[in-house]
Design a protein around this nucleic acid. Structure first.
Lengths: 107, 107
DNA sequence: TCGCTTCTTGGCTATACTACCAAATAGCCA
DNA sequence: TGGCTATTTGGTAGTATAGCCAAGAAGCGA
């Protein structure tokens, strides 16, 4: 793997890593329905506000969400709705795993 | 977020986490072209064989690859080629980020 | 200006991940 | 069987991540 290839895979991994957490996936799922402010997300995630804020900053840093400050509140929205297909792919893998396990159990 | 939802997002995160590493993305990329044995992958990744083996076991555990032992060698292949669309989505985000940075720089 | 609210940042601890080396396992062939 | 090769597993050290609390920053309204 040469240096350029390495960089390419590092870049991909950085984005995927940003999605690799249940709370962040939940946030993405909620934002798929429209923009939300941090306190709304906090309720859903059920963690400390500071924790949610850090999750959001990770997603923002990866370019997955963008923020928009209006008055006291900061609204977040998906920057790239294509992340949703993404989740679809994952669900396929989960389905496939479930079938696989079922097939093994049936023996 | 209720318990059932939590489990669903945990399951998704587990799969995504398995992909969230440059070496593992590289492996997926290579396997997209066909099955490979561990030592072939090791060459590409450029890490210790034991390290590659552990990466493979993470991918296998997530249901992304499957293995097939033939003689002394163990061949790995993608179990769910849909992970490739997945990578496509990531590339979209990277593109969007690049354009965004360019737009900011142009100001 | 002062206090209140919303959000972010810094500090800390516990947990998880990664990579290497060394040792174990498994299959082949002499 | 004994040695050789391919791979996995165990151990360990360094690094990164996640969560909470406390403190800071910014906007609003009295």
């Amino acid at each position: 793997m040469d240096a350029k290839t390495q960089l390419q895979f590092d870049a991909r991994a950085k984005i995927i890593k940003a999605l690799a957490h249940p709370s962040r996936l939940f946030i993405v799922d909620v934002l798929a329905k429209g923009e939300r402010c941090v306190c709304e997300l906090r309720e859903g995630v059920g963690a400390d506000m500071s924790t949610v804020s850090k999750h959001l900053s990770i997603l923002k840093n990866a370019g997955i969400v963008e923020d928009d400050k209006r008055g006291l509140q900061v609204f977040y929205r998906l920057r790239c709705p294509c992340v949703l297909n993404f989740i679809g792919c994952i669900e396929n893998v989960i389905q496939a795993n479930a079938q696989h396990h079922k097939a093994l159990a049936a023996r």
